[in-house]
Simulated scan of single mutants.
Amino acid sequence: MTFNTLLSTILLQLCLASLGLAAPVSTESLDNSWQYGTGGGLIGLVILILDIVVFVEVLKSSRSPVQKFIWCLVVFLFPVIGMIIYYLFSNRSSYQGGSGYETLA
């Protein structure tokens, strides 16, 4: 198993674990189901989707595995701030991987 495959597997497992922990368990009465146990509601869902887009973009880039790991860790630990930092300071245009296919001679 290569380092990139191992790194991708670990990041996927962390993402899936964060989904399991996203909805807090409340011991209070559940009078308003939109308020308790939704894990952030619609705003949380939008942030989750945007974070997944960042993870895919980072993993498909031509960065070194260490840089990929650091960017994914920043976005995982600080979802909103990490995403903003990534889009402002990551120099995405120089690391775009392209289509992923090699041209034929």
Rank of each mutant, 00 (worst) to 15 (best):
T2G: 06
F3Q: 14
F3L: 14
N4W: 04
N4S: 12
T5R: 11
T5Q: 14
T5E: 15
L6N: 09
L7M: 15
L7V: 07
T9F: 13
I10D: 02
Q13Y: 06
L14A: 09
L14E: 07
C15W: 05
L16S: 11
A17P: 01
S18G: 04
L19D: 06
G20T: 04
L21I: 01
A22R: 15
P24N: 06
S26P: 03
E28F: 15
S29G: 07
S29K: 14
D31F: 13
N32W: 15
S33R: 12
S33A: 12
G37P: 08
T38I: 03
G41M: 02
L42F: 15
L42W: 14
L45T: 14
V46T: 11
V46F: 04
L48F: 07
L48W: 06
I49E: 03
I49P: 01
I49D: 01
I49A: 13
D51E: 13
I52A: 09
I52W: 12
V54D: 07
F55Q: 02
F55I: 13
V56M: 11
V58P: 01
V58N: 02
L59Y: 12
K60Y: 12
K60C: 05
K60H: 09
K60D: 04
S61A: 08
R63P: 03
R63T: 00
V66M: 10
V66R: 05
V66F: 11
Q67W: 04
K68G: 01
K68E: 02
W71S: 06
C72D: 03
V74L: 01
F76M: 09
F76R: 07
L77N: 10
F78G: 00
F78Q: 02
P79C: 09
P79G: 08
V80W: 03
V80H: 01
V80A: 04
I81F: 02
I81L: 08
G82T: 02
I84T: 07
I84K: 07
Y86H: 09
Y87L: 12
Y87V: 09
Y87W: 13
L88T: 11
S90G: 06
N91E: 07
R92I: 04
R92H: 11
R92L: 08
S94M: 08
S94H: 05
G97A: 08
G98S: 06
G98R: 13
S99I: 10
S99A: 03
G100C: 08
G100F: 15
G100K: 10
Y101R: 13
Y101N: 08
L104K: 08
A105E: 08
